[in-house]
Simulated scan of single mutants.
Amino acid sequence: MHYLTFMIPVWLLYMLLTGNWAINNIITGLVLAGLVALLVRPVKRPFTWHRLPDALLASGIYLLRLLWDLLLSGLQVARIVLTPSLPIKPGIVAIPSECESDLGVALSAHAITLTPGEMVVEIDDEGIMYTHMLDASNPDEHVEAAQRTRRDLLSRIFV
């Protein structure tokens, strides 16, 4: 039953994004929503109304934070590309996700990979995300603060 509660919003989102309410598109959307549910394997969680405002607020903050990180990283990458003499040190950095759910780890890795100049190349069984960074010369304070913010927001959204 909890698969249906996951599939219906995914299907509705698909229908709203395509804007095509023909029967073949409705069936295609249902099949795709079912496949997404099988891939994601949603965990049944009790729903409480009193937690909804905090989860919505955390979702908004997470989205704004993601957009801000995208903007700043895009500017940093543009600066590196336009000024090739800048001393950069590309490398792979291990970032502990510290998220409690697989969905939290996946969304955290997605946010990192969306950011220009960074890409998660592997996630191990303990949730350590191995991330290639265009400039890994001083990753400790930036990575720790950014991951702590992501983890806190995702735990408010998905707990």
Rank of each mutant, 00 (worst) to 15 (best):
I8D: 11
V10N: 06
W11S: 12
W11N: 12
L13T: 13
L13E: 05
L13D: 04
L16Q: 02
L17S: 04
G19R: 05
G19Y: 05
W21Q: 04
W21M: 04
I27D: 06
G29M: 09
L30S: 15
L30P: 07
G34I: 10
G34E: 12
G34Y: 13
G34N: 11
L35I: 15
L35C: 12
V36L: 14
L38T: 05
L39K: 09
V43E: 15
K44E: 15
K44Q: 15
R45H: 11
P46L: 10
F47S: 03
T48P: 00
T48F: 10
H50N: 07
R51D: 03
L52I: 10
L52H: 00
P53R: 07
L57F: 15
L57I: 15
A58W: 13
A58S: 15
G60Y: 12
L63V: 15
L63K: 05
L64T: 13
R65G: 14
L66P: 02
L66M: 12
L66A: 10
L67F: 12
L71Y: 12
L72C: 06
L72M: 08
G74V: 10
L75R: 14
Q76C: 06
V77E: 03
A78N: 07
I80W: 00
S85I: 05
P87I: 12
I88S: 09
K89Q: 11
I92N: 05
I92K: 11
V93W: 12
I95W: 09
S97M: 08
C99I: 01
E100L: 13
E100K: 15
E100H: 14
S101W: 03
D102T: 11
L103F: 08
S108M: 07
I112E: 05
L114F: 07
T115S: 05
T115C: 04
P116T: 09
M119G: 01
M119D: 01
M119V: 14
V120R: 02
V121G: 04
V121M: 08
E122Q: 12
E126T: 09
G127Y: 06
I128A: 00
Y130E: 02
Y130W: 14
T131P: 09
H132P: 01
